[in-house]
């Protein structure tokens, strides 16, 4: 059959017609997709390039030393830049937040999906979603003025006075704002998003399996342990990573509550500083070389976030699940 008689032949590019339209549409979408990667690469490269002089000046001590003493030079690097105490500040507060928020979120999701009647569970689920949307500065202010003085500080005092002597990192001296106050308020901030994703995953538990478990004479708790929790596990890991991402990057609320000290942590009840916090607090008055160092802190924060996410994916992949929280990320 010669080509001019083939009614189904694809017209050449640029000759108009439906398939040309389709080709252009595909290109436009490909460009939109690629733009994400382009922006990411541009950000990483320009940030790392600007921070490079600090990295070469400090070497590994940028992440192994806590000696942070910015210089005031416009052209050279004269200060010492060891960001370890900020890195630890971020990791400690995020860890406290997750240790508190994840078990609470799992319990809350189990209640909302398995125990509460729909007439109670549904409004509560909306409330959880609403909490996730409250701007973090509001949480910070609320923590600063009400939650920490009324609830957290008395609790910390009790802990420090009772087990503080025996358990490392829980002892005195207790300062007003410290890792624990920041971590606990952070827990409340990440709780809604972790709960929202976990609840969503648990709602998708196959009803046939739930009925199968009940039909064998299982109690609700036995059914939850055997069916709901294993099924939801990849989703819970995904939700935890989502919460961790927020905790690592949270700036304002942590900066308000962590105490703003640069020492190495010896107790959770001591003041500290986080990576995002030091960037936000000192950027405005920073000298040019200090700005480079802050950019370096930004690069480290970026790398930690990427590593944590990769580790989470590895865990999920190794245990044969998929990231059910992906849609929400």
């Amino acid at each position: 059959m010669s080509s001019d008689t083939n009614a189904f032949q694809r017209p050449a590019m640029g000759s108009g017609g439906k398939s040309t339209q389709d080709a252009w549409f595909q290109r436009a979408l490909a460009l939109a997709g690629a733009s994400v990667l382009i922006i990411l690469a541009a950000m990483l490269i320009s940030t790392a390039m600007n921070a490079w002089p600090v990295f070469t000046h400090s070497g590994w001590s940028f992440i192994t030393s806590s000696d942070w003493d910015p210089g005031i030079s416009r052209t050279e690097i004269t200060g010492s830049y060891g960001a370890l105490s900020f890195i630890l500040g971020t990791l400690i507060t995020s860890t406290i937040a997750l240790l508190i928020a994840v078990p609470l979120a799992i319990g809350c999701s189990l209640y909302l999906t398995q125990i509460a009647r729909p007439s109670i569970g549904r409004p509560l689920a909306y409330a959880v979603d609403l909490l996730a949307a409250v701007p973090s500065v509001v949480y910070g202010l609320w923590g600063l003025l009400f939650f920490v003085p009324i609830f957290v500080r008395p609790m910390i005092k009790v802990i420090a006075d009772t087990v503080g002597e025996a358990v490392p990192f829980l002892g005195s001296p207790v300062v007003t704002y410290n890792y624990a106050t920041a971590g606990i308020v952070l827990a409340i901030m990440v709780l809604p998003i972790i709960t929202a994703v976990t609840r969503e995953v648990m709602l998708n538990t196959p009803i046939a399996e739930i009925q199968g478990a009940y039909a064998l004479g299982s109690t609700r708790w036995e059914m939850i342990r055997a069916i709901v929790l294993p099924r939801a596990r990849p989703g819970i890991i995904g939700a935890t990573m989502l919460g961790l991402g927020r905790a690592l990057g949270e700036t304002v609320a942590v900066a308000m509550l962590i105490g703003g000290s640069q020492r190495m942590p010896t107790s959770l009840f001591q003041g500290g500083q986080s990576m995002a916090g030091v960037i936000a607090i000192t950027f405005q008055e920073a000298s040019p070389e200090n700005v480079k160092a802050l950019l370096g802190v930004g690069v480290v924060l970026f790398v930690i976030t990427v590593l944590v996410n990769m580790a989470a994916r590895l865990v999920i992949w190794a245990t044969g699940g998929r990231v059910a929280g992906d849609a929400a990320v």
């Binding site: 196959p206 046939a208 009925q211 199968g212 478990a213 039909a215 064998l216 294993p230």
Partner: peptide, 20 residues
């Protein structure tokens, strides 16, 4: 009801083995 279901078992329309 848990004890009732242990003594009166059930097989469903669609096979529903556990993911175990």
């Amino acid at each position: 009801p848990v004890e009732v279901r242990r003594r009166i078992g059930m097989v469903f329309q669609k096979p529903n083995p556990f993911p175990k």
